[in-house]
Design a binder for these strands. Structure first.
Lengths: 242, 242
DNA sequence: TGCAGAAATTGGTCCGACCATTGTACCATT
DNA sequence: AATGGTACAATGGTCGGACCAATTTCTGCA
């Protein structure tokens, strides 16, 4: 029994996107560049502007492109010929429970990224991480508290060095999605204070090529964040905000 | 400094989707149900059919809806008022390296899900997992090899019992995306044979409420899968297919 | 030279029409 | 009665042209 393809009769949208992807690659367009106007695309591809717009709407929904009225359509992410799309949509992210759920996902990914990092980091990569760590520690002592930006830089360095781009993509996407919460989640301003020492222990385990040790330290770090959040949530509830 | 919303002057698309979401919720439409035709929506909402179509194209891109020409538009997933969209798109998933990358993501998530499962599984949930395990083991002995379906059922049960719906959503989405590979990846037909015993050990750790033990066993399981894949890839390369 | 207003450009919306596919009711053949 | 074909209506897909709204660019005056 051969698995015959669905054979969609009309698939102009996809055709348009394929041609457009080829164009972007051929022209070596990078994020931020402007791509041809809808009217030009319509004329060149011999399809109606409606069809072009439907196709661009798809790309816009995937975050590949940004449309600015009166200005043009701009590339927002790198485009390649073999792109896989994984649209995730989940319900109600405005409550404490959802925040915990995303944190659990992050814990799994963070631990794995740290472990892989310990296996794959070369001297140069290790140096980058160490630098980010020191910048973060300096900021911590200067302000007597965790700094989100420097903290985030440190973690991103780990994702990058892990050798698997998916970690950075997924966690960054989640981070942006919950930006409002991660800023001052639940009103806890010294948020992440308890997590401070584990940044250095993670680095040390990575430097020692100890994958399981790095994984364990990463788990401890997220555990402290989780504890902080639970404390903040409890405070809110006690204050009668819920 | 208040973070004022972008406030796009023209955002009829979103407005349409909000109203449509309310409609779906109010009418209690479930996946598989058919929703009003584009022409009806256009008339009821007092917007052009073009706008309705752009809105539905967005939902289609998110996998919330499926459009069948000549038939209608059908709901494909649950819709709620507070939906968060996390569209991920990554390049080139047709090679061995990408398969490894997704497997690393899965390892992190699988381990975390198993650990949470050990903490949260009640007697009823534990019984469900045990049942899936036995079905899988039976299928294994009957066919003298791993069965993808029963194996998948077992893992899905763990995701569900973890109490965090994100695990099932993310891993299922990845599973569907890489369907062709997970079936007979790289032509290895006794794929996953080595992973068999770890299913039971994972269950035992969960039953014993041993979160870290469950995490460790899950890591071992994925490690065997990874080893199998590496072996298959090496075979392919030796055979000159690459 | 500098700047305000006009004009062109571009994405957003609307309308009406027609095409392609699907589902259904009806009819003829067996 | 069952089967298969056919016409018709419903529905999503595409088209062309028009106008609106935001932005950019050009122009001419001070």
């Amino acid at each position: 029994m051969l698995d015959l393809p669905p054979l969609q009769a009309t698939a102009r949208d996809d055709a348009v996107l394929n041609v457009l992807a080829d164009f972007v690659i051929h022209e070596e367009l990078k994020p931020g560049d402007r791509l041809p106007t809808e009217r030009v695309l319509s004329e060149r591809l011999k399809v109606s502007r409606t069809t072009v717009r439907e196709a661009l709407t798809r790309w816009e929904g995937l975050g590949l492109v940004e449309r600015r009225q009166g200005s043009g359509t701009y590339l927002k992410a790198a485009v390649s010929r073999d792109m896989l799309h994984l649209p995730l949509t989940f319900a109600s992210g405005n409550d404490f429970e959802s925040l915990m759920h995303t944190l659990e996902i992050r814990r799994g990914l963070e631990a794995e990224a740290a472990a892989l990092c310990a296996l794959r980091a070369g001297p140069a990569e290790l140096e980058i991480i160490r630098q980010k760590l020191e910048v973060m520690e300096e900021a911590f002592h200067a302000r007597a508290g965790m700094s989100s930006d420097e903290d985030w830089d440190f973690h991103q360095a780990i994702y990058r060095v892990s050798g698997n781009p998916l970690f950075e993509q997924i966690i960054t996407a989640m981070h942006e999605l919950f930006h409002r919460f991660w800023e001052h989640p639940l009103g806890v301003h010294d948020f992440g204070h308890a997590s401070f020492p584990y940044h250095r222990t993670i680095y040390e385990r990575i430097a020692a090529r100890d994958a399981e040790g790095a994984r364990a330290e990463a788990l401890k770090l997220i555990a402290t964040v989780e504890a902080d959040l639970r404390r903040g949530d409890a405070n809110l509830k006690r204050a009668g905000y819920k």
